[in-house]
């Protein structure tokens, strides 16, 4: 999190302009240095930082509002989301939604047994029903392929432990009763999905 701390120091200066800043998503992302954590092309190379490229705009809007309102608790996102107006949120979401996503190049080697176990769990809990046949998501249901494995595991654990406030409680129910090993398997399976 050293990166986060460094970036936070710069916010005090950056913010006043941003509050009434441009409605161009790319410019806004540049001004608020979103790319430092999420990748300039929306594909993160930083541990624990999610990729945003190709994520559904409706999902991104909702998450940015949840950060802005202080509901989704993520210290690193507090300053970047502070004071964003609704049109700014929409512009940022549209910008990242339009960037092409793809399988992560740095995703490491496939552990076939682990991935198979993840696939079995996913089938049993119908992850595809909501996240799409290819996990590509739709509307407010996020893309969960093309994502960092460490972030996926973190997100799934947060839902299971009730520490992530989402737009509804669907994911809390989905994760009910799963262990850390199950989560590791799911994250590995998803990170290696095409």
């Amino acid at each position: 999190m050293r990166l986060a701390a460094l970036l936070l120091a710069g916010w005090a200066l950056a913010l006043p302009a941003a509050a009434q800043g441009p409605l161009d998503g790319a410019a806004l992302a540049n001004e608020r240095q979103c790319g430092a954590c999420h990748g300039l092309d929306g594909r993160s190379t930083v541990p624990d930082m999610p990729s945003l490229a190709g994520q559904g705009a409706e999902f991104l809007v909702i998450q940015l509002v949840l950060f802005r309102e202080g509901l989704r608790n993520a210290p690193a996102m507090r300053e970047p989301a502070r004071g964003l107006s609704d049109p700014q949120v929409q512009a940022l979401a549209d910008f990242y939604a339009a960037l092409p996503s793809g399988p992560k190049e740095d995703r490491g080697l496939l552990d076939a047994a682990l991935a198979a176990r993840g696939a079995q769990l996913s089938a049993a809990r119908n992850c595809n029903a909501c996240h799409g046949a290819d996990y590509g998501g739709r509307a407010h249901l996020p893309r969960i392929n093309h994502q960092r494995e460490d972030y996926l595991a973190h997100a799934l654990a947060q839902y299971r432990d009730g520490t992530r406030v989402g737009m509804d409680t669907q994911m809390n129910g989905v994760m009910h009763g799963l262990g850390d090993a199950d989560i590791a398997a799911l994250a590995h399976h998803l990170a290696h999905a095409p």
Partner: peptide, 21 residues
Amino acid sequence: PAWAQGRPAEMAASPLAPHPP
């Protein structure tokens, strides 16, 4: 899982999900 309990096999692949707020 808790959310799907009572979901019959023929609805397993249903694409229904709550609407986005």
